[in-house]
Structure formats: structure tokens, C-alpha cells
Amino acid sequence: MNIFRLLGDICHLVAIIVLLLKIWKTRSCAGISGKSQILFALVYTTRYVDLFFTYVSLYNSVMKVIFLASSYATLYLIYVKFKATYDFNHDTFRIEFLLIPCVILSLLITHDYSPVELLWTFSIYLEAVAILPQLFMVSKTGEAETITSHYLFALGAYRALYIVNWIYRYYTESFIDGIAVVAGIIQTILYADFFYLYITKVLKGKDFKLPA
């Protein structure tokens, strides 16, 4: 554990809590892509099956349980409790276009052909693109609520901090996980446009609106 990974995990946790609180407090999931949340739940489920097979640390296990539980709680809020506020007309990204390539890629490029390893690899690839339905929704409506933009910023910052952590680990432990690093870089690049608008608009107190 190093400071970059810890900060990354904290950003990740903050993102999830911000999203849950936003939906809970406003009693509405308007502007939130349920499809991205389905993909994230799938990411955590396939990656954290190792919860039953390997023990790393108490921190590691507790965080995994929190990520799993919060992702299913988010799905419950969107698809059950506040279903009436779910903006399905704007959440039209076809997730099979992400799921199928991720399945194929994880069968082609993986560290090892064991079921747990394949699920882990799939989860890494899927996480890289899981935010696309949400970004697609924002681009379709041309705007995002300020709180939604904070959520997206924290979620994007998490993987960016992990990249710094991987560089640090490369120099201190002299090894690197090629799959995680390449996927993590792609994941961070997908947020680049958003980061730019967030920094130039939201941090200056303006609304998050895409240029017309």
C-alpha cells in the first residue's frame, strides 16, 4: 500500500458515497445511467469473487464488501425504489457493444486461463469502459448536475491515481501488471474530456454544460 493507491481508493469510495447520497437525498436518479451502474456491479462481482478464495488484508476484504454492497444498493435505488425518476429515454447505450468485446478480449489476453483469472481480466477490461453509458447520457442531454459531475470526477481521479501507484510500484517492487496498466490508462483517457470541462467550469462555480 502506498499513498497514491490509498488516495485512489478514497476517491473511489467518495464517488460511490456521493452517488448514493445524491440519489437518496433528492429521491431521484435523474441524469444517472442505470446501465453504467449495472456494468459496475458486474465489474465488482466478477473481480471480487476472490473474496472467497484469497485473503490479502482486512482493509482489502472490507473495501471489496463495501464496493459490492454499495453497487447493488445503487442498482436497487435506480431500478426499484426510485424507478419512476429513472431517465431511461436518455440511457440508450447498447451495453452488449461493451460486454461482448470485453469477453472476447479477456479470452485472448489474460495472465492465465483459470476461471477466477478470466473473471478478473474481464472485470479489468469492463471497468475501463463501464462509464461510457454515463458519458453517453451526459453528451446526449448536454449537461450534468453539479453533484453528478463531482461523482464523475472522483471516479475518474481514482484510476488516474492508480496509474501513479503503478509507476511507484514499478520502481519500488520492479514489476508491473500489463493488463491493469493498459486498461487503466484507457479508462483514464475516457475521462479526459470530462476532466477538462470539470476543471474549467464546475470548479469555477458554473454548471456542467457541454459546448453547443
Binding site: 493507491r5 481508493d9 473511489h12 476472490d50 484469497t54 490479502v56 488484508s57 482489502n60 473495501m63 471489496k64 464496493f67 495472465h111 483469472e117 478478473w120 492508480y162 501507484n165 503503478w166 510500484r169 520492479s174 514489476f175 508491473i176 501488471d177 500489463g178 493488463i179 491493469a180
Partner: peptide, 10 residues
């Protein structure tokens, strides 16, 4: 081998 799986990460 510098390639290694980071399974201790989240």
C-alpha cells in the same frame, strides 16, 4: 519476470 498480476489491489 516483471509482468505480475496485481491481485492485492482493489
Amino acid at each position: 519476470n516483471i509482468l505480475h498480476s496485481f491481485k492485492d489491489e482493489l
